[in-house]
Design a protein around this nucleic acid. Structure first.
Lengths: 130, 130
DNA sequence: CCCGATTTTGACAACCATTTTCATTTACGC
DNA sequence: GCGTAAATGAAAATGGTTGTCAAAATCGGG
């Protein structure tokens, strides 16, 4: 199941700091001269997500954004709301809390989504300066 | 700042168990004979969200869904993935964890989104039975 | 009650990310 | 080289949401 296009898309994500949208990735690849269609970018992204090689989350505006994740383990994200820089964080406390809250109400097969947003140190500095 | 339409939309949400989409709310109101436009439903929903009288979250498909929340306090949701039934839960532990994780990495103005999904007791029973 | 000003409404068009369609191209085995 | 199956991408379709703008409801004097 090799796939040149998919690897190219994956590579773009690997070289990015934060989350990127599909349109964004497509635009960059075209700008670099790559002959690839938007459709293929979407398909590659989906395949990577299915493979667990890429994380996906929704922005407040309903756009899907993707990021190559460092580990396959379960983790959450601390995302800078200004520059998009992302830090992967583990949260054993949250996992246990979610599980406990669900069980407490009789719910089973508990899953959860957690995203933390903030302003990163450099953006914070820029705001003060500028 | 009274508004009959907005109150009507709010009422529909109050009488609903779980989260409802804008289209869904609109369809129900029309079915009940209400003379209201889709645009107005969207506007009412946004106003209610801005007022903190209604919670909003995004489904995996990028659709916004709304719910009248019992308290104006900060809280999270435990949502049944089958029937949409929702329980509001407080999570002091999570609030603290999010704040701590952000601070630890130098981030400021920390916010977070947390949603817990599971199968509620009755749906769980139905699955076993059916 | 009447009139003009302001706000609210809603039918319809515009948006835009994403998906589908489908004809063409590419990859691979023989 | 040939045929078949998979991959590709341009263009059209989709669908939730938002913008436009004229008509309708509401309000405040006079």
């Amino acid at each position: 199941m090799s796939n040149r296009r998919r690897d190219a898309v994956h590579e773009v994500l690997r070289q990015s700091e934060g989350f990127r949208s599909a349109q964004d990735v497509y635009a960059e690849m075209r700008a670099e001269g790559a002959k690839i269609g938007l459709t293929t970018v979407y398909r590659a992204l989906q395949a990577l997500v299915d493979n667990g090689q890429v994380d996906v989350l929704r922005t407040g505006e309903g756009e899907s954004v993707y990021r190559a994740c460092a580990s396959g383990d379960h983790h959450h994200h601390l995302v800078c709301r200004r520059c998009g820089r992302t830090v992967e964080v583990a949260g054993p406390a949250v996992e246990r809390w979610a599980e406990a809250v669900g069980t407490e109400h009789g719910f089973t097969e508990i899953t959860h989504t957690v995203e933390v947003f903030g302003t990163c140190p450099s953006c914070s500095a820029n705001v003060k300066a500028g």
